[in-house]
């Protein structure tokens, strides 16, 4: 084959597939338009993104954008504990001793073999009835000085929703952590045992071996799959709507019900999720390429 020939060019098969796909889309649009007799009305959507506030005399985010921001907050906030769970349990899964392996294996298997939705229903009950009082989140928010409240709101969103957001973060981190555990385990196990032997031979302690030899190599290898898992985390945050965490999907449901513009609202929400996730995957691609370039 001539080099360069098989670059981005469209053959006749590609053209046929594309035509078929376009035809299918056109058909669906036609059906929706004529057969369902759905009357499109996008005019309500902008209002639910941003609305003019007469009191404050400025534009403020309405339900959909508030949900969007909460979703971003949830994702960013749960990323840290999820990565922490992943790192700790991932290292434990590769331990020589039985107990740590047993504990982390139990955690991973328990979560991976229960549908996230079911897990969240059960776990949320436990969080809201046990953990939240234990953390004293409500009292903390109620007793906070105005300055501290402002910084809390910056991180967690509107004060009234802080306990709500924290519950969501804990749920999301718990079950995403299980998937990250498996990624970290795979990364650690991909480092050959000969590296351990070489490290021990120059007299490194077990801890130094981890810190200086195994983890730096393992982390480099797991960054691409971890980035992918983070995007999954963003999307999966939508199931938190079912335990009344006021994120994008939850508020979309409310908006759809109150406006009865079901398609318009959900298509808008799909677009918002898509933009967020696509932006993240582009950003990670970039990071990965830069890391690859730094290595050579």
């Amino acid at each position: 084959m001539i080099p360069g020939r098989n670059r981005a060019r469209l053959g006749w098969i590609d053209a046929a597939v594309l035509t078929a796909a376009l035809a299918a889309v056109a058909y669906v649009v036609y059906r929706v338009d004529s057969v369902l007799e759905y009357r499109w009305d996008w005019s309500v959507i902008p209002h639910f993104l941003y609305r003019w506030d007469d009191e404050a005399q400025r534009w403020i985010p309405n339900l959909l954008m508030r949900g969007f921001f909460t979703t971003i907050r949830l994702a960013l906030l749960s990323l840290i504990p999820a990565a922490l769970f992943g790192a700790v349990f991932g290292v434990m899964r590769t331990a020589g001793r039985l107990l740590p392996r047993l504990l982390s294996r139990t955690y991973v298997e328990l979560i991976r073999n229960i549908p996230p939705l079911v897990f969240i229903f059960i776990f949320y009950f436990f969080i809201s009835s046990q953990i939240m009082p234990l953390l004293g989140v409500e009292d903390l928010v109620r007793g906070a000085s105005p300055a501290r409240l402002r910084s809390l709101e910056l991180v967690f969103g509107p004060a009234s929703l802080i306990p709500n957001v924290i519950s969501g973060v804990i749920c999301l981190a718990m079950f995403q952590g299980a998937y990250m555990t498996e990624i970290v385990r795979a990364g650690i196990q991909s480092i050959p045992g000969t590296q351990t032997e070489a490290g021990l031979s120059i007299g490194l302690s077990r801890w130094q071996l981890w810190r200086r030899v195994i983890l730096p190599q393992a982390i480099r290898r797991v960054i691409p799959p971890l980035a992918g898992q983070f995007i999954t985390l963003v999307k999966d945050s939508s199931i938190l709507s079912l335990i009344s965490i006021q994120e994008l999907s939850f508020l979309a449901m409310e908006t759809a019900v109150s406006t009865t513009r079901v398609f318009e609202v959900w298509i808008t929400v799909a677009g918002l999720y898509f933009c967020l996730c696509y932006f993240l995957s582009l950003a990670f691609d970039r990071l990965e390429k830069r890391a690859a370039m730094a290595r050579t």
Binding site: T194, Q195, E197, A198, S201, G203, R212, V213
Partner: peptide, 17 residues
Amino acid sequence: AQVRREIGMVFQEFNLF
């Protein structure tokens, strides 16, 4: 660890970091 630091080891596959 004390003994190992006094014994150098060279492997068939180099095993550099």
